[in-house]
Design a protein around this nucleic acid. Structure first.
Lengths: 164, 164
DNA sequence: AATATATGTCAACATGACTGACGTAAAATC
DNA sequence: GATTTTACGTCAGTCATGTTGACATATATT
């Protein structure tokens, strides 16, 4: 039987390298989200609330359907967390000026405070990782992660990420 | 009022850079998992099953508690998916030889096939991103993601990731 | 012999996703 | 002006996956 693991088999090395990259992403994402989750628990909010606060914070005045498009969840799913956030005064809605069917979303003062608090934890984690890794590594991180985004939507997503 | 967004304010640039890095991670992870989820749906398996198959595949003979430690979920949670995988013949348990309380976990032939199938989708995605980004970028990706892993456990996790 | 550990299991519950159906107001189109 | 489409909300039921807490069983360790 052929020794697939032979050191000189470039295909195996490639596969192993890819498997490691995949696992690395799993562990990094797990620990990356852990800090924010901890803070949110004090408010009885979960990751779903966080995502709403994050994206509304970065796109003040965005509509509900824009948010749905980013999150890729159903409106019923969104509605549960969104109406909760509104009821508890972290997010507010204003009728669209041009199209009055739209509900434009904004963070309240309270919402902005929470966003800052949670974001800070994550930013500090990423800042440390960036500092340790160095500028070239950061550029590489960006390149690779960009390449992981669904090609069909990559441009649109990247415009959203880098625009605000 | 001070213009916090002034182009010459390095603090703002830093914060914006970090926010973009965070969002990038969110979108990349979302799309990275989408492909695997699709395949798993055909088997009526979810992400939880995938994680078990992945880690058992990469650590044949690992014990239940090792797996629990990696996944950071409760044994009750694990048990639901694990017993399902066993019942359906994708994973098997063997009593530990040294410590007979332990249940060592292995993929069956069927399990290995599924693991390959799902892994392949993800590996192709990552391979494309790596190819587009280039070798230096890949090194940077690894450095940064490693830095995102909880410092306390980083060495242990990295040994696990790179060992097998 | 007593205690600790590895695992399994029952029961109840929370979160956040889903589908499907239906309603309402406003915009767009015929 | 009537009709259709769009943006959003909502009710109802389901599913996947996580949680706590309590308890059982076999095996190791002390």
């Amino acid at each position: 039987m052929t020794d697939v693991k032979s050191t000189n088999n470039p295909l195996f090395l490639r596969e192993e390298e890819l498997r490691q990259a995949i696992e690395l992403l799993f562990f990094a994402y797990r620990d990356f989200t852990a800090g924010a989750d901890q803070v949110l628990k004090d408010y009885d909010f979960g990751r779903a609330h966080h995502r709403v606060i994050h994206f509304v914070g970065r796109n003040e005045g965005m509509t509900v359907s824009e948010l749905l498009d980013i999150l890729k969840i159903t409106k019923q799913s969104l509605n549960r967390v969104l109406s909760n956030l509104i009821k508890r005064g972290f997010v507010e809605q204003r009728q669209g000026e041009e199209d009055r069917r739209q509900r434009c979303l904004f963070l309240t003062e309270e919402g902005r405070k929470l966003e800052q608090k949670v974001s800070r934890v994550q930013r500090e984690l990423v800042a440390n990782a960036f500092r340790e890794a160095g500028g070239d590594a950061v550029a590489g991180y960006r390149k690779v992660l960009t390449g992981l985004i669904d090609e069909e939507q990559r441009d649109r997503v990247m415009r959203r990420v880098t625009k605000p």
